[in-house]
Amino acid sequence: MAVSTGSKILNNVEAVRETLYEAMKNDERTVILGEDVGARGNVFLITKDFINEFGEQRVIDTPIAEASIVGIAIGMAMEGLRPIAEIQFADFIYPAFNQIVGEAAKTRYRSNGEYTCPLVIRTPYGGGVRGALSHSVSIEALFYHVPGLKIVAPAFPADIKGLLNAAIDDPDPVLFLEHKKTYRLIKGEVPEGHYTIPIGKADVKKTGNQLTVVSYGLYVHWALDAAQQLEAEGLSVEVIDLRSIRPMDRTTILQSVEKTRKLLIIHEDNKFGGIGAEISAMVAEEALFSLDAPIRRLCAPDVPAMGYAEPLEHEYMSSPAKMAQAMREMVTF
């Protein structure tokens, strides 16, 4: 990460907001489109007042029509704008599935490089906010299968800024996932000025030598809490924040696993066919004989989403305590 002149403390909402603001300020080609992004300034107030500063031509309150929010953004991108499309909640992205998977991800490929689709699709995802069945889902596994698409899911304000800048600068479509529970919960130092973090680079958020934990999103924070608990017990856990889901950082994971010889993958999305499945397979292919214990995945149960009632959400979500327990079992395996 490029170190710049100064820094300030921002939460995750502010980090997204500041980055979008600078992109709008610095590049006239940038437009933001989505439901309620203008007058209201997005339901989380991320783009509040943008419409006053940049005008309603560049901050577009769209009709409620997700397929065309993405489809129109694709057309804009093909004709030289740099659209940042917002899907109000990740749960509403399904109507746009074909435009993302079938169109954006294939534009460059199908035209043999003649047309490109530099497009960012931002969307808040994840649970723990009493969002019930349709305001809490994780969607990354549905998209990470798709060549032509990039997916990032940073969890810290500085990573958000660096990766959102990278996504905006990127010549290809990027799905930018923001965990909504971290929005105001997580604060941190953010460098001033423009900088990028390469898409596809994970980050070791805590070093350790008895177990590698790979996670992303809200759960990285919980995993760090759990790892601190274990530290107090004299157990040493390394925590890797994936940050990017496609492409994914093999080097960092393998280096860590070769050191700790044990791997625990933690994510909020369902286990079956989730991100953890790909990581497990990769490590099994590349580093099986470095492992001293079976790989383990701590993920959501195989149900479609968390229910609204508190006990249902609680049961669905993991917790620092559950994570600490799994880490303990792995370290002492």
Partner: peptide
């Protein structure tokens, strides 16, 4: 699928 693309292109012109 081309319909929204055309509309986005028209938006770029506008």
């Amino acid at each position: 699928t081309q319909i929204p693309h055309a509309v986005g292109a028209a938006y770029a012109l506008k």
